[in-house]
Design a protein around this nucleic acid. Structure first.
Lengths: 336, 336
DNA sequence: ATCATCATCTAGATCGTTCTAGTCCGACCA
DNA sequence: TGGTCGGACTAGAACGATCTAGATGATGAT
């Protein structure tokens, strides 16, 4: 039968090659200080024995784990895209990623502890909900990068998308299509909701238009309810807090026989997976998850390796044009 | 400025509590051999210093990390539900979970390595795509549990949902509603697709009905295309490979003015998040992610702690009735 | 009074690495 | 020839936990 075999150690390789443990360590790490001939001899012996460094021991001694802790929420599809991109960037910079999810009955604090236990050298937290003080507390131990949230105090790095710019682009786009009655369905208590709502108000006024905010939330259900509210006095365009909300809004319109974009233009936010579906084709503001993720990883690695102080990185989102926005004149044609 | 403070060690706690390192170790592990009074004193000191055991050092010495490795795919929303439930069950059994994602450019093998490096004592892989041989190779080192796939050889545990039973329930349900022309849109190359397709064929024949299979896939786009194909000769009911496929199918019907369930009944599979949306209300076969996850975790822990041999756990799915399935007679009423 | 017993606690070895501080020895230079 | 330099190599101390073996002292039996 297959025996559970003890894995070979440095000592085994050293004996086989007839050198010291230390020298094998040098060779295995590719560090300078070994003659080419012995280097070959050692590598040969290691290959022979199927030697692989025990990372636990290595990490214990060197205090370098090359591990980045990434905390995401298992219920947010948008986070998955970030995770995906973060892996790519991390491996490009020679780091591994340790994941920890925030789930029901598993608060952020718990996720953080797990990551520190396995030896993460920095923490990247997507849309952290902890207080600034709690974040600062952890930041004293290890570099902390907040992703998608920027009011996190002086000790914590942040990489976020410029919500104001995103909304400005949204309002500009709709205004340039001739819309004057543009409503906003907000995100309720969700992260970034306040910023976007205020940006919307300011930008509408800048255009000389009257802002109309309808209470919403971050998902389809709240979006649908908001859509029904909107129907009492239908605007010609609506900016949703995010794509899921937009989906709900559109669904309520569809049920009422209101067509998009003929009767009303709908603009989402996030450019998520389902905005791209062929039967949805939702115009949306893209925060560009891959870019944000890469920036967060870069930031974390820079903090670990260099000694630069915490700082903020802000990226400007952009418009992804699809089929749910159109000229303001359109709805007259559609209704006649 | 705030100095990056060193993480407290056993020694620090020992000094603070005025006892030896060994005793602190005993207390922290909850091992017998410490007086209740000192136990309290030590715990107090540990709490004071914010002490947490360094899992690397612990592992190096004891080879016990109480860590379960869980591998999921970042692009599968259904996996997220499993992750969620797995956390709950693991912590109930006194284990932590280390996550590793399969993402673009990051194959399963890589995910496995990371988890082993971090010291996972067992691996739970959701819908593994590795060959039986490769899985067996890893299973020699550490217990491996395959989730949602059961053809994984003798060395690997599996926890899966009974695809045959699921399809049987689906066909029975529709047949009991009087449907006789029931089509199946399959999952193409997706895991479980073959099993469900064959189950569908067998069950249809058992009911004395003629099976009709339309090629599909695991997502909305392929579902929609299949829906268009179906329209050439519309059946009275369709069983989709999964909910996302069902969504696409329904979308194609909606575009063609075919109403559900009046003209046709649609049954999904997975009972996923969006099947529950108020404007979708998709009847679906539920695999019960939380139960599956819990079973997988239990299996992994049992394998680690006991010496029971690898085995298969199969759970029977169940029907979740919503608004997309109805009596076969209904479409006549609907059309008149 | 003596000794075994038991609960409680501690010293020191140990896990498999990396790192520090050397040793050794041949080559080169004055 | 003798001193210095530097490349190649090694011994032994970390890292932070666990584990084994044994010390300590109170208790109770003889």
């Amino acid at each position: 039968m297959t025996e559970l075999q003890r894995r070979p150690t440095l000592m085994d390789v050293a004996k086989a090659a007839g050198v010291s443990r230390a020298l094998v360590s040098i060779v295995m790490r590719g560090a300078p200080g070994a003659a080419e001939s012995t280097r070959q001899k050692v590598l040969e012996a290691a290959r022979e024995l199927g030697y692989r460094a025990d990372s636990r021991a290595r990490l214990l001694r060197s205090s370098r784990t090359k591990l980045l802790g990434l905390i995401f929420s298992s219920s947010q599809p948008f986070h998955a895209e970030i995770v995906d991109a973060a892996y790519a960037e991390a491996s490009a910079r020679g780091y591994e990623i340790a994941l920890s999810a925030v789930a029901t009955g598993r608060p952020e604090a718990r996720a953080i502890e797990t990551l520190l236990d396995v030896g993460a050298e920095a923490l990247i937290i997507i849309a952290p909900t902890l207080s600034t003080e709690d974040l600062a507390l952890h930041a004293r131990r290890v570099p902390v990068v907040s992703l998608l949230r920027d009011d996190v105090g002086d000790l914590v790095d942040s990489v976020s998308s410029d919500d104001y710019a995103g909304i400005r682009i949204a309002v500009d786009h709709l205004a340039s299509l001739g819309h004057r009655r543009i409503a906003h369905v907000d995100g309720g208590t969700a992260v970034s909701s306040d910023q976007r709502r205020e940006a919307y108000r300011t930008e509408m006024l800048r255009h000389g238009l009257e802002p109309v905010v309808v209470a919403g939330g971050p998902d389809e259900e709240t979006g649908m309810r908001a859509g029904q509210v909107l129907q009492a006095d239908l605007p010609t365009a609506v900016i949703a807090f995010n794509d899921r909300s937009a989906l709900g809004i559109m669904e309520s319109f569809r049920a009422a026989g209101i067509s998009i974009p003929a009767d009303i233009s709908v603009l989402g936010y996030d450019d998520s997976h389902f905005a791209r579906l062929s039967y949805v084709q939702l115009s949306s503001i893209s925060q560009d998850a891959p870019l944000l993720a890469a920036a967060a990883v870069d930031r974390a690695v820079d903090r670990i390796e260099g000694t630069l102080p915490p700082g903020r990185v802000v990226r400007t989102p952009h418009l992804v044009l699809r089929k749910t926005t159109g000229h303001a004149g359109a709805q007259k044609v559609g209704q006649n």
